[in-house]
């Protein structure tokens, strides 16, 4: 790892001000993506600005129709939250499946979506649930947030402060984990909103990162059941192909994971 200067601001404004002062500053939350990348010398920030200790950025709140998770809340704390388990069980389940217990104690929701790894879990929930990403500057709809591999709508220095998830009528998540890393070889999040709309997002599959799957959405809107997807075929165009699985294999996984997610959602 190259030399860097560590900062621990106590407010969002202080963090944003520090960012503009550094020649090549980076925010740090749980550090479970950034630190490994710094060790590989693929990132060499002049300044590392720790958001993980800012009190306003930690915690979650559940109201009648929204689950709001502040950005530096760990995967563990989301998975273990009774209110989240009751409001959106699929979201708590997703958080409980990320990496391993030590990773879940450190990794955060904001770090996960800011990074937008094409095989990360949270992006599927954010997109399928139609969440709103709030930053220190504005609110961004999930449909406008993810911009392909490792890129998002965030401007340089912009800080995610929280993610607000509308509570759906039903939701389910199923992933085929990579056996070593637990990242999604393919993971599918299915949602039936309170107004009867259906939204489905797949992670780990596309070359462009998380995406909605229109064919599955249409089939589930007509008939919310795993069997409704029996006759759906997912084309493998644009899907990842690597040593872990071919694009054909992932295309099939999208369907199978969607069926399991619907079964889990009930």
């Amino acid at each position: 790892m190259y030399a860097t200067t560590y900062h621990r601001p106590s407010s969002v404004d202080e963090a944003a001000a520090l960012f503009t002062k550094g020649s090549e500053a980076k925010y740090l939350a749980g550090g479970h993506t950034l630190i490994p990348v710094m060790k590989q010398r693929l990132a060499s920030p002049s300044d590392v600005i720790d958001l993980g200790k800012i009190k306003d950025l930690i915690g979650l709140e559940v109201s009648a129709d929204t689950v709001t998770i502040k950005t530096a809340t760990t995967h563990h704390d989301v998975a273990a939250s009774g209110p989240v388990q009751r409001a959106i069980p699929a979201l708590a389940h997703l958080a409980s499946m990320i990496g391993d217990p030590a990773v879940r104690y450190r990794g955060t929701i904001g770090g996960s979506i800011a990074n937008n790894d094409p095989a990360a879990d949270y992006p599927a929930a954010v997109l399928a649930l139609g969440a709103t990403i709030r930053t220190n500057k504005r609110s961004i709809a999930a449909d406008d947030f993810f911009k392909g591999l490792f890129s998002t709508a965030l401007a340089d220095g912009e800080i995610i402060t929280q993610v607000a998830f509308p509570i759906p009528a039903k939701a389910g998540y199923s992933k085929f984990p990579h056996p070593a890393s637990r990242f999604a070889l393919t993971g599918v999040f299915v949602v039936k909103t309170k107004s009867g709309d259906v939204r489905v997002a797949a992670t780990g599959a596309s070359q462009n990162g998380v995406m909605r799957i229109a064919a599955i959405e249409a089939a589930l809107k007509a008939n919310w059941s795993p069997g409704a997807l029996d006759s759906v075929t997912i084309p493998d165009k644009g899907l990842m192909s690597d040593i872990h699985g071919s694009s054909d294999y992932r295309a099939n996984l999208i369907k199978v994971m969607a069926q399991r997610a619907v079964a889990a959602a009930g």
Binding site: H32, P36, K53
Partner: peptide
Amino acid sequence: RAVKSCTVLVGQAD
């Protein structure tokens, strides 16, 4: 909390 100390900067543990 049990965490991987190879993935924590000393400043974070201050």
